[in-house]
């Protein structure tokens, strides 16, 4: 397991995700379903630091997201830890050095995360989110784009730091 980094950075990242989430909601509520900053954070952390980091960040981000949604507390967290853990685990096994590979990989896990969430939601509430949130269909694409981009940027920055 690679370390996420210091705790303050982790909290800052979580805080940043929450800020983005608040900002998107303030700009347009529909944007919250189009871009989920918590998912982006969990997936990015999972890809960069592995499954345990994805697991822990999934818990924190999921609980935070649930704290601000009118639903069952722990629902998003469950979907996050499952997808975060699996993503972190697989990302260590697979060669994901190109942007397109990363994109496809994240896209699949994003669909997985969304499916878990939607299924759990449907099981608990007996209604589907797929019919009420049209932007939710675009969420896997935006998530994969953002996560791939962030990972690429982080690696580039990390490489520059190593050379320096």
């Amino acid at each position: 397991m690679r370390k996420i980094g210091s705790w303050p950075i982790t909290i800052a990242a979580l805080f940043l995700a929450f800020l983005t989430y608040s900002l998107l909601g303030a700009v347009d509520p529909a944007l919250v379903t189009l871009i989920n900053p918590f998912v982006v954070l969990v997936f990015s952390v999972a890809m960069l630091y592995g499954e345990t980091a994805g697991l822990l960040m999934g818990t924190a981000a999921g609980l935070l997201q649930d704290a601000f949604s009118y639903g069952v507390f722990g629902l998003a967290g469950l979907s996050f830890i499952m997808s975060g853990f699996l993503m972190g685990w697989f990302s260590q096994k697979l060669d994901l050095n190109s942007f397109s590979k990363r994109f496809l990989f994240v896209f699949i896990f994003s669909i997985l995360q969304l499916s878990i969430w939607v299924i759990l939601y449907a099981l608990i509430f007996k209604k589907s989110l797929l019919y009420t949130q049209p932007f939710i269909y675009l969420q896997p694409a935006t998530t994969s784009l953002l996560v791939s981009g962030l990972v690429w940027l982080f690696r580039k920055w990390q490489l520059k730091g190593d050379v320096g």
Binding site: M1, L55, G58, T59, F73, G74, L120
Partner: peptide
């Protein structure tokens, strides 16, 4: 990590199961 994943998974399940009867 697997143990931790299991713990957290069950933690969430417990959280959900305690939450569902509480309703809103």
């Amino acid at each position: 990590k697997y143990f931790l994943a299991g713990i957290l998974f069950f933690f969430h399940l417990i959280l959900i199961s305690t939450q569902v009867p509480l309703g809103s």
